[in-house]
Design a protein around this nucleic acid. Structure first.
Lengths: 237, 237
DNA sequence: TTGTTTGACTGACTTTTGTCAGTCTTTTTG
DNA sequence: CAAAAAGACTGACAAAAGTCAGTCAAACAA
């Protein structure tokens, strides 16, 4: 399934620009580049499983990966959608625990694997990089607090509106007077992000469509009225 | 309101044993100790406010602090209850952002304040300490993922049962055949942890009491049947 | 001590959300 | 291409949870 690809050196990788590696020193970039392994993945493949031991970190060059946990009721909760430039699996490596979630490709991807030792060595010898990673970790905690608060306090309707806004910010492409979410997600996957039943997502989406705040173009969602969505998501007040 | 106290040196502080500082080198403990400031706080006082700039970190010597966010609907969501040995406010410091939450004393506390510079200097010069902090941050992310999944997928009943179990683990004192949660929380505060309405907490608690899994002793809750609670929280299955 | 405030609690009711069963449509595959 | 499978969707219904209004009890203050 996965095929090893020509290893573009990290020095030349376009997605590095906005990643944790953006300010890494030249020699370290070379070290990482030397040990890394670029692999091509198809939709549906699993990058790693919850509960297994991390052997390194992943850096996404292209494609989209969903990171999710499986709840005790069998349903899954999507924690995060990772795209080009994002790193995966460093939490588990740094906490010295097994993976706390599962990562699955949802849009064909090219992903580099950086073995544990090379990553940690660079981390501990390059303080600016270490600081950068720590900053990212701390930031993520704030993001998770926000998600937790929303999940506990907002209605499904508000949460769906908010998720659509976020998706349009992360995966949006500009049209005239609107914004298309350039990512194919099943209704079930949207439900797994929001944390609700698939049927609820379907009903709410058609409601949003009827109200003219969104439009469907094939499998993709177009945001027609971001301000309206923001109001529905209780972004103000 | 707050009164400055005799500064017990960190070297002698009992709560250091289990804190992030547990493996700090002797000279660094001295540096921290020299710059820190021990302050006594009464229930209801606010340690810091969401949205303000962090000037240092807090280390709890005794007492309990609730860390919470205020949602757009005005209700608050308790993220964490911090007790002796816990650190507060380092996320914001490390992410170089304003506080993402508010911290309020809920049980009279003595808390040391370590100024930004002293903390950061120690962090960046002592790699083992830095690693320890990073490990804690990464671990917390896993915990938050778990909380998010529970909040999105479990029923209020399951979540309340789970919260009671957690509280008994963190604040529990052993009795014969039972375990008392040695912390006074209002129903409203419990609701803010679970993320529900106060009335729902009241109703469910009396239901749990009727079923014999808990008992009330004054303002405190006693867990009579932890296994039963675990089953109710859908801990297995 | 008594009036006042606050928190705990209850019941009736509404709204939200989930579940189930089934149809229709699209995609996949033999 | 046809059959099968998966996904999108709908309606009816049930269950969960929130809201509102009000009582009761405890803590607090004058």
């Amino acid at each position: 399934m996965s095929s090893k690809f020509s290893n573009t050196p990290c020095e030349l990788c376009a997605s590095r620009k906005h990643s944790l590696f953006s300010e890494l020193s030249a020699p370290s970039v070379c070290t990482i580049s030397e040990f890394k392994n670029s692999i091509s993945h198809k939709k549906g493949q699993i990058l790693y499983y919850e509960g297994t031991r991390p052997l390194g970190v992943f850096c996404i060059k292209s494609g989209v990966v969903k990171v999710y946990k499986t709840a005790s009721n069998g349903k899954s909760q999507i924690i995060h959608l990772a795209k080009a430039g994002d790193f995966l699996g460093y939490h588990a490596l740094l906490s010295e625990e097994n993976y706390s979630n599962t990562a699955t490709i949802i849009e064909d991807a090219t992903i580099c694997f950086i073995p544990r030792e090379a990553f940690l060595k660079t981390l501990f010898t390059e303080t600016p990089f270490f600081k950068r990673v720590t900053k990212a970790l701390s930031h993520e905690i704030g993001v998770m607090e926000e998600k937790l608060t929303d999940a506990s306090q907002k209605s499904i309707r508000e949460r769906l509106a908010f998720v659509l806004l976020q998706l349009s910010q992360t995966f949006g492409v500009e049209g005239d007077e609107n914004r298309k979410i350039d990512l194919i997600l099943s209704r079930e996957e949207i439900a797994s992000i929001v944390g609700t039943a698939t049927e609820s997502v379907i009903r709410l989406l058609s409601e949003f469509k009827k109200d003219g705040v969104i439009k469907l173009e094939g499998k993709k969602i177009i945001i027609m009225d971001p301000k309206g969505l923001a109001r529905m998501s209780d972004f103000y007040a």
